[in-house]
Design a protein around this nucleic acid. Sequence first.
DNA 1: CCAATACAATACAAACTTGTAAGGATTTAG
DNA 2: CTAAATCCTTACAAGTTTGTATTGTATTGG
Lengths: 164, 164
Amino acid sequence: MNVSALEEYGLRCAARLAQLKDGETLSASEIAESEGLSVEYVSKFMLHLKRAGLVKTLRGIHGGFSLAKPPSEISIKAVLDGLKGPRESASFCDGFSGRQSVCARRPGCSIRPFWGVLEKMFDGFTSRLSLEDLISSESETYLRAQQVAHELCLEAQAEVEFKT
Amino acid sequence: MNVSALEEYGLRCAARLAQLKDGETLSASEIAESEGLSVEYVSKFMLHLKRAGLVKTLRGIHGGFSLAKPPSEISIKAVLDGLKGPRESASFCDGFSGRQSVCARRPGCSIRPFWGVLEKMFDGFTSRLSLEDLISSESETYLRAQQVAHELCLEAQAEVEFKT
DNA sequence: CCAATACAATACAAACTTGTAAGGATTTAG
DNA sequence: CTAAATCCTTACAAGTTTGTATTGTATTGG
């Protein structure tokens, strides 16, 4: 499971903003300081989050960043997608077609459902957790994440019963 | 969820080998042909799998590649790890410490349990599925993957009940 | 107005990933 | 023995990611 630097640092910074009270802001330099990153770097991916509509900015001497919506309404999936910018990520089959225009395994590929189920778990997990879940204590977040993981299983079970 | 080209193509080629009968081999050019890749590229990552002890090779005119163990004994996780080569992948905390030697959020980070639970799901899923599960039909593989996803959920449930 | 503060945009360099190229080493058929 | 087939190794080029540097633009306090 590969997590890019953009995803990791961007999520951390978004989680910082989730701790703000209404009307408060955090400047890039404050975020950079608290996360141990350079100001330029923080500015860079906060801009991505702004363009994705997740973050508001204010310029000027008391400016800074704040969330555009309540933390509970911003899923972690939305943050991760927003950080990547507007470029669409191709599906496994379209993205890895080797030297050909279409994957050599089409149709009837058994690799596809493997990644498909895995991606569904990933998307389900990141969609159900929000920035609000990242501002609790470490142990509370852990329990909440476990709970979501459990809920996902029930869905998988339902789908298996439907198919068999 | 980012899947690298190495992981995707390497897994496909390993799955091809899983279809071989005992004593049969597939040459790099045969694999390359069937997967739509170059011979040189296939040779490259098959070597990684060999060094990881998952694949046997035979040189000479009737040589080629075959699995070192039965497909059921080679987990998908072992294949994905083997493809990366011997370099260890740092944990999230150690790998993303920004400009500092240690992550600024230690101790008590609520991002950590989020990735932790996700990675546990990923590892559990890829550990329980083997190359044998990738040689069935697309729909059979799909059902098997769903079943494994469900099993993982039950584990998560047990853990939540224990903690609360 | 003006200067300080802060976001915004672009360029750039180092490191990693992706895929190709070329030649070397090993086995086997004849 | 020799030649063909095959794996093995190293080098390298193009593209992407990562992080920095520089310059521009907007807002606010005095």
